[in-house]
Design a binder for these strands. Structure first.
Lengths: 128, 128, 128, 128
DNA sequence: GTGGTCTAGACCACT
DNA sequence: GTGGTCTAGACCACA
């Protein structure tokens, strides 16, 4: 399904969250699709089931999946991914960190705007 | 000198590192300027001296400052920072991930631009 | 007969129990009426027969239905339900906790009344 | 600080969450007060540290507390307890369960409204 | 000292 | 089978 980088500073469960989120956003995991069971995924990734469960729980908090007792964990409909203030704040924080990094590379505000503009254009093209 | 946000998820020492980096890049702290002593800055920020210590060590490791035993810590002359293309690529990837998520959450291109604009303004104000 | 919400945190069998209870209390299922067979209901709701089985057992335990081997499950005659004062007290305590939290979160009395009104209407519609 | 009911059907961490929330709402734990450390509270309650941590994490999700790395967990300012849709939905669910219970006691809609009215009046008196 | 992550493995309720 | 909770105990980063 995907690979973990155990040497990364990112914790394992965060990597699981990010990877699955990507799969959902990319449509690889369509709405209502069942995710692998906690036990299965933990075996595949050779990590502890608790670690996978923590990732699933986080995905549920963020609204990307929902769980049904005894049945499994499923991809939630897109409308259910609530764009709440908390979530938006987290994403903004992500942007702030990246903007800071660009600053450290010596980029001026104008160069940063150019980079951002290019990235947005990329997206438009993809959607065509 | 600058303010810390204890409620942020970023660790205190990271915030210290970033803030000082920004002051150096913005030229507020010119080359050869002495940084406040660990003890002084820790009092000003009301944080543990070990935390400031760790931040200074990190800044030294990254080449932003150098220490002279018994004299203090000084802003280093920045070698011409060649644009690190690999790092830039990583940062762009970070942006792509966040943009994809915003798109998935239903944000229009215009809303995304607004968010970005606000974040950039934030930075400008900070540097004033 | 009724609908389940798989995305709810309530387990499926609990939802079945509650829904049937409400139908009995509302008189939609009169005394001595036969409930659908476990197999039929499980097909209608597209859930596991064991789940319906468990719900029926729970309803029997609570005295709402009785089972006759080989014939089926029937709505029991409700003994005059004397108001259980102890249970009422517990429920009121539950309300107090929730009201306190709403208050703490900044809701005015009027807003709380609005929420309550909406929830009551919800119930009425359900029973129509 | 408070007592757990190990025989309760509510999980331990949920009881911890509820109890601490009550203490915060009641003002026993004022804003910026430090909660007992995970290890201390786990010893006091004789439960596993992970269980307490899970409770603290949930409280942080709900906005009642915030954590600072290496320092501890603190009561958040009341304004930071975001009344987001998710939280309101959870509280509404709590109401729905309780309303259902009142129905099982044989209460009519009018009687339920009376009970609710009385509970709201209680609150007003307390606030006087 | 603080919280955060992770493992190994048990037990439970639900489907 | 499924997810959820809990324990015991290790290791890490941060203050």
């Amino acid at each position: 399904m995907f690979q973990l980088d155990l040497r990364s500073r990112r914790s394992i469960y965060e990597q699981v969250v990010d990877n699955i989120k990507e799969l959902i956003i990319a449509g690889v995991l369509p709405v209502e699709e069942r995710l692998p069971s906690v036990r299965d995924l933990s075996k595949t990734l050779t990590v502890n089931p608790n670690t996978v469960q923590k990732a699933y729980r986080e995905l549920e908090y963020q609204g990307f999946v929902y769980t049904v007792q005894g049945l499994g964990t499923f991809v939630a409909a897109r409308e259910d991914v609530k764009m709440d203030e908390r979530r938006l704040g987290e994403i903004k924080d992500g942007f702030r960190v990246l903007l800071r990094e660009l600053g450290y590379l010596g980029m001026t505000k104008e160069q940063i705007q150019q980079v951002f503009h290019d990235l947005l254009s990329e997206r438009s093209e993809h959607n065509d």
